[in-house]
Write a protein that binds this DNA or RNA. Structure first.
Length: 270
DNA sequence: ATGTCGTGCAAAGCACGA
């Protein structure tokens, strides 16, 4: 079984590449972010033609999250319990579902813009709502149920997760409170920690490069190797023990018209 | 700090977000 998470940066702009990628890599579940789609514009028909059911949460120009599955799509949850608002609205940043016995979330954590910006505070509150969601579901489902929080966290957990930590002095994505908020999610249920699965940098069996998942469109970030590992898979023991391989599909970042993110792929035992 | 994208509005140029 194969599951993946991918920030598409517009499903409309990415649809040809998305469909090609689904046929090439054959994921059983895809957790998608930044669809920038409405329920009307979500391409459910094209996805169904490839064998995927899908559940989408999106209202327009920004954000938007979805789960695609060809192994069942049940218990769909749109939004987090207690999800904070920004500018008076709950944004389309979280959708959960159960797929073939796995409880999975597709998350698009707010960017934060600048440390100290109100959007940064919103980011921290959102991450705390993710933590609370994990605690609540852990209480209901128990530690034996495979559980994963996947998506664009907009946080690089370690200094080595960015191309040059000196270039990020004072920046978001690497600050202490953001990293502490991610750690708090992982440790929310101390008897059932969530592991930050470290992927390989590519599908190759051995790849010594850093496993970045995002490269800026500006300044030729990909071409210059200026990347960040900000798309994460936080999974409990029950799911982690089924992971045979985790890797970044950096080939999806190449060529004409890519997203600025590459998919993070998990290959599981059946 | 931004040299690139993507979106939507109102209209082929901008504002906004990342």
């Amino acid at each position: 079984m194969r599951i993946a998470t991918w920030n598409l940066n517009s499903v409309k702009a990415r649809l040809p590449r998305l469909l090609t990628w689904l046929e090439l890599r054959q994921p059983d579940v895809l957790l998608a972010q930044e669809t920038k789609a409405t329920e009307q514009s979500w391409p459910a028909g094209e996805l169904r033609n490839l064998g995927y059911e899908s559940a989408h949460l999106g209202t327009g120009r920004w954000n938007g999250v979805a789960i695609l599955s060809r192994v069942g799509l049940d218990e769909v949850t749109r939004g987090l319990t207690g999800q904070p608002e920004f500018d008076g609205a709950v944004e389309d940043r979280a959708i959960g579902a159960s797929c073939a016995g796995l409880r999975l979330w597709s998350l698009y954590v707010p960017n934060g813009r600048q440390v100290g910006h109100q959007h940064f505070d919103y980011k921290l509150r959102f991450l705390d709502a993710v933590r609370a969601q994990a605690v609540a579901e852990r209480a209901v489902r128990g530690p034996a149920a495979p559980y994963g929080l996947l998506g664009d966290f907009n946080v690089a957990p370690f200094d080595s997760d960015v191309w040059d930590i000196a270039a990020f002095d004072g920046a978001t994505h690497v600050s202490t409170p953001e990293r502490a908020a991610v750690t708090a999610i992982q440790q929310a249920s101390p008897d059932s920690p969530l592991h930050d699965l470290m992927p390989r940098a590519s599908i190759d069996a051995v790849d010594a490069r850093p496993p970045y998942t995002f490269w800026e469109m500006r300044m030729l970030g990909f071409q210059k190797g200026r990347g960040m590992r900000i798309d994460l898979a936080l999974v409990n023991d029950a799911l982690a023990q089924r992971v045979e391989s985790a890797w970044v599909d950096r080939d999806a970042r190449r060529g004409e018209g890519p997203s600025d993110h590459a998919p993070l792929v998990l290959d599981l035992t059946d």
